[in-house]
Amino acid sequence: MRVGPRSAQAVPGPACYGQGGTEPAMTDAAAWLGMLGPGDLASGIHLNIEKARAALESVGTHIGQDVEATAAGVMRISSAAMANAMREISLDQGLDPRTITLLPFGGAGPLMGTLLADELEMNHVIIPPLAGNFSAWGLLGADMVQSTARTRVIGFAPGALTEVARILEELFATLTERSTAHAGDGVRSVRLDLRYKGQEHTLSIEVELAEGRIAETEEAILERFVAEYARTFGSTMNEDVELVSVRASTTVLLPRRELSYTPKRSDGEDDRVMEVYSFESTARLPFRIIPRGRISGEIRGPAIITEDTTTTYVDVQWTISSGKAGEIILERTH
């Protein structure tokens, strides 16, 4: 069975949207397993579980599996593919995911949080405030950055920084000319893409500046490159190092914004319980359905946490608590 990369998109969407889609999508699998709780989504969408079942059954008959096993397989394949992408930016860069906290966001990120943590043996997950709109919220407060680069392949030996300085003067002039955000008044930064001679891939090393000019020697930059190479790849090479690209950026800092987030409370509504599939137990278990605004103290999973723009699936062996900024903190119990 293959999952993706083609999307059902919003229209016609997954079969469970009831907008004409008939092919099973990942959302159909999550809906059938109960991972989306009662299925009340934003914009008044209510998921049609029977249409999700019919779509999944069309695949299950071809692979000799019932609907439950087919839906669980869809979610497992999806989480494995996502985890592989995460390995590329962690393990392949010399970082151990087990020492990192996962921060899933977007409409589907919190749904997949504990599944991805299981794949990567991570023990901490944080669901940020406004998780479903987190990218948009961050974009509104992002600093104004202008960047440019130039390829210049030369040996990184004494004297190389003279050529780098000449290139940087031209790059920063370009940034000032093209920027509508007064890039010339922003904070300057420089990175050099370096590699051992004969290699294809580079490491980008930040360079210290003083009054907009490079304030360190080739030797100091080389030492940092060698240390970063050893950290990333576990060894170094007895080869000369060469410069590949010079990167210049100017950043205009925007005022820091404070997040004031209080999820909607539903004090008049008691927590509900649903039979939901547990990947840890490979069976359906009673899951509490908890509106995000009702989280207080420490709650033990399993649970489904609902809010307007996303749904958080919390399997067994996880605890739930709320942080000072309104974030949800999930921690694995052992």
Rank of each mutant, 00 (worst) to 15 (best):
P5D: 06
Q19S: 11
G20N: 04
M35A: 10
D40Y: 10
A42V: 07
I49C: 00
R53C: 03
E57D: 12
V59W: 15
G73H: 00
S78C: 10
A85D: 12
P97R: 03
T101W: 08
L102K: 07
A108K: 05
A108G: 00
E119Y: 00
M122I: 04
P129D: 08
F134P: 07
F134D: 03
L140T: 15
D143H: 08
M144R: 14
T148K: 13
G155E: 15
R166I: 06
L175P: 02
T180M: 11
A181Y: 13
A183H: 08
S189V: 00
K197M: 10
H201P: 00
H201Y: 14
T202P: 01
S204A: 15
I205H: 08
L209C: 08
R213V: 15
I214F: 07
E216V: 02
E219N: 09
F225D: 02
V226Q: 14
A230K: 13
V244W: 01
V246T: 08
A248S: 10
A248P: 09
T251K: 15
R265P: 05
D270P: 03
E280G: 04
E280D: 11
R284T: 09
I289Q: 06
I289K: 01
T306Q: 05
T306S: 05
E307Q: 11
T310S: 13
D315N: 14
D315M: 01
S321V: 04
S322W: 05
K324M: 12
L330Y: 08
E331R: 12
R332S: 06
H334L: 04
